[in-house]
Amino acid sequence: MTAEPDLDTLLAQSRRRARLGLWRRNTSDWVLFLAGAGLILWGVFAGAQAMRYNWQWYRIPDYFWREIDGEIIWGPFVRGLLVTLEITLWGALLAFAIGLAVALLRLSRSWAGHALATAYLELIRNTPLLVQMYLFYFVLSPILGIDRFWTGVLALAVFEASFISEILRSGILSVPPAQWEAASSLGMRGYATYRKVVLPQAVPLMLPPLTSSLVNLVKSSAIVSTIAIFDLTNEGRTVIADTFMTFEVWLTVAAIYLVLTISLSAVASWLERRARRHTDP
């Protein structure tokens, strides 16, 4: 008779099978990714070759920075990236503040506040961002007396806040009613309930969609180029107008946006894991 394998052996075999399955899945995912990326790149280069396009990648680094007499001169890509980051930062702060106010109005018992927040959501979410940008620039900007930079920031913030408000509201509502009742039975009120009971449970659920909103804000910021703000996209258009390096410039601009959004997603994933470690029993 053969001896039955002990529990440790079975667990070790199970772990090996799990690692093997994960390795196979990861390998197949990477193969599909590389195949798709290769197909896209092949299409771009094949199209450029059919157009007899003259590639000039060697000129691209000069549009990041140049060193003249020992001094670094930042190029249009870096200047545009800094403007994009500034727009994203202020837009995210304003969008969160507006979104929080709208979420609280939606959760309040005031019918007037609820109706006002609902009207805002329906109006903003069902009209194009480009149209809103033009309305802010040509209508509200002269009335409020603000420059084009803050006009673009405000338009982006108002648009993105319509999504953030629903994320915040759904995150708060995801906390079971029993938790609210338990906090109330312990004598907690208002701020203490949110800080000690609601937010520790809601924040890990909010982080992934909030990250998506921030990434969407970064990508949507390119629309400020329509009102002559020299962000990364507009700087790219200026370089193309000067050099006619259409393929190189747009591929470079797209790569910068990609690195920026992936970095934001990675930071948000780290924050989400950390938040879950602190809330898990």
Results as ranks from 00 to 15, higher is better:
110 S>G: 05
105 L>W: 07
137 Y>R: 03
64 F>K: 00
112 A>N: 09
104 L>K: 09
107 L>M: 15
93 L>Q: 14
109 R>C: 12
103 A>C: 06
136 F>T: 10
141 S>Q: 13
112 A>C: 08
140 L>N: 02
63 Y>P: 09
96 F>K: 01
70 G>Y: 05
126 N>H: 06
116 L>I: 14
94 L>D: 09
92 A>M: 11
105 L>C: 13
85 L>S: 03
131 V>L: 15
122 E>Q: 10
135 L>G: 04
105 L>G: 15
120 Y>S: 02
71 E>H: 14
77 F>Y: 09
116 L>H: 12
91 G>A: 02
127 T>D: 04
85 L>G: 08
131 V>W: 11
100 L>R: 13
129 L>D: 13
89 L>Q: 06
72 I>L: 07
129 L>N: 05
78 V>H: 01
78 V>N: 00
136 F>R: 07
133 M>T: 10
73 I>D: 13
128 P>K: 12
110 S>Y: 11
63 Y>L: 02
110 S>D: 00
101 A>F: 12
64 F>T: 07
96 F>N: 04
71 E>V: 13
88 T>S: 09
109 R>P: 08
102 V>E: 12
73 I>L: 08
121 L>K: 02
89 L>K: 05
137 Y>G: 00
102 V>M: 15
69 D>C: 00
131 V>I: 14
75 G>P: 08
133 M>S: 03
133 M>V: 14
89 L>Y: 06
126 N>E: 04
123 L>E: 10
121 L>M: 07
113 G>F: 13
69 D>P: 02
129 L>H: 13
138 F>P: 07
87 I>V: 13
130 L>I: 15
84 T>M: 06
121 L>V: 10
81 L>Q: 11
102 V>N: 08
94 L>M: 05
102 V>Q: 04
128 P>F: 02
115 A>K: 05
124 I>K: 08
114 H>I: 12
108 S>R: 04
68 I>G: 05
112 A>D: 10
73 I>K: 08
65 W>V: 04
138 F>Y: 14
105 L>P: 03
100 L>Y: 11
133 M>I: 13
125 R>N: 06
116 L>R: 01
82 L>Y: 14
122 E>K: 06
102 V>F: 02
138 F>I: 11
140 L>K: 01
64 F>C: 00
116 L>E: 02
61 P>K: 10
110 S>H: 11
66 R>H: 03
137 Y>T: 06
68 I>R: 13
72 I>K: 00
116 L>G: 04
105 L>Y: 12
118 T>V: 05
124 I>S: 06
111 W>H: 11
132 Q>E: 01
90 W>I: 10
118 T>Y: 11
91 G>S: 12
119 A>F: 15
118 T>M: 14
105 L>I: 11
123 L>Y: 12
134 Y>T: 01
130 L>H: 05
100 L>F: 09
77 F>M: 00
90 W>P: 01
72 I>W: 10
